[in-house]
Computed example of a mutant assay.
Amino acid sequence: MRTAMVEQMRGAGDLRTEGVTRAFSIVPRERFAPDAPLEQVYNRDDVVITKRDDNGLALSSVSAPRIQAQMLEQAEISPGMRVLEIGSGGYNAALIAELVGPEGEVTTVDIDPFVTDRAAQYLAETGYDRIQVLQVDAEGGVPQRAPFDRIIVTAGAWDVPPAWIEQLAEDGLLVVPLRLRGLTRSFALARKDGRLVSQNYDLCGFVSMQGAGANDERLILLQGEDIALRVDSDQLVTSPDSLRSALTSARVTRGSGIEVGGYEPFDDLDLFMATALDDFGLLVAKDAAIASGVVERSARMGAKTALADDSFAYRASQPTSDERTSFEFIVYGHGPHADQLVDQYIGLIREWDQSHRGGSGARVEVYPAGTDVRVPAGGRLVEKKHTSVLIFWPTSP
């Protein structure tokens, strides 16, 4: 089953280098998730939840193999490196140990003693007991083991604390699932002239950071708990009652004229919208609300939404062929200014289509908070506790 998973991941492009492929072929993933069925353990897309809170929400997990492979490929780990993993579980640390070899060093940390005890036990049982497992709040890093050639964060982070930058070697890489305006991407960040600069990024999802680095999104209920807006902490929603009223108003529906193929990724459109729109959130809805026709199916996973004081507009898609091999982006608006907001949204979809679709993507730069940052046209500066994050879109040739 491990061999079959590796072959599937190679075919899908998850595994691109010999070292990462070899690590996945060697490390027994089932030993780090002994309570899960093997079919789940060796499913390329499956997350194994190892701890939940009282409400059933995941607190710790063994990430999906394709996400782990994605981040390890981003990290470009070589033999002999010193690597810090923030967010433990054991399995990913074992993969890293295979990549750094006997001359390298791996430190894996977590704030939860349940997680670190479990990781230490499984690592020892599988022969990876030279990995250092520590229970700490990773906001302060691990200064006694620094500097690190690579820091890999396997929990969703809202910010980059100073310790992670200070403890990163001058030519090191930080790979972190960073949340920007409600969207999380795994960024590979390199040090350059006092800031971090993105080398690449990928779509991902992770359990949120706990401890001093925790920063939860806000949920604005629009129709009980069935329909809500999820907004990041940098977004101010001044009139939630007006947005609730907007939901019950007549709906504006307009096609964009922009189509995508059935398997074409368009997550960069989401990131572009989050950059371009002054007020941005995710419209989320339960199945009953979707079935009633109040909102579209895209709200099940979080429809990317333009916000105004009393109106909002979001995107969905509808098939343009009976075979469902192509889809047109449709924009829906609610509220007294829905017409203007829908037109703005469609204009941005067309701008993405003309200037950025299939291009090199966004560039992200992370500066210490308080830095005077020049923001290019069309870019956005997102202020956080420790950093100012610049995101902009170089025009593709």
Rank of each mutant, 00 (worst) to 15 (best):
V6K: 02
A12C: 03
T17D: 06
G19N: 11
S25A: 13
F32L: 05
P34C: 10
N43A: 13
V48T: 12
R52N: 11
D53Y: 03
L59E: 08
V62N: 03
Q74E: 06
I77Q: 06
G80E: 09
S88G: 15
A119E: 01
D129Q: 15
A138Y: 03
P143E: 14
F148R: 00
V153A: 04
V160P: 02
P162F: 05
A169G: 15
L180A: 07
A188T: 14
K192Q: 14
S198R: 03
Y201R: 09
D202R: 15
L203I: 12
D226L: 09
V231T: 05
Q235T: 08
P240R: 02
D241L: 06
I258N: 02
G262R: 14
Y263G: 13
A274W: 11
D279I: 04
D279G: 14
L283D: 04
K286V: 02
D287I: 09
G302R: 12
R315K: 15
A316F: 15
S326F: 04
F329C: 06
V331R: 00
G335M: 07
G347R: 09
L348T: 01
E351Q: 14
D353M: 12
P368C: 07
P368S: 00
G379Q: 02
L381W: 01
E383L: 11
S388E: 12
P394I: 06
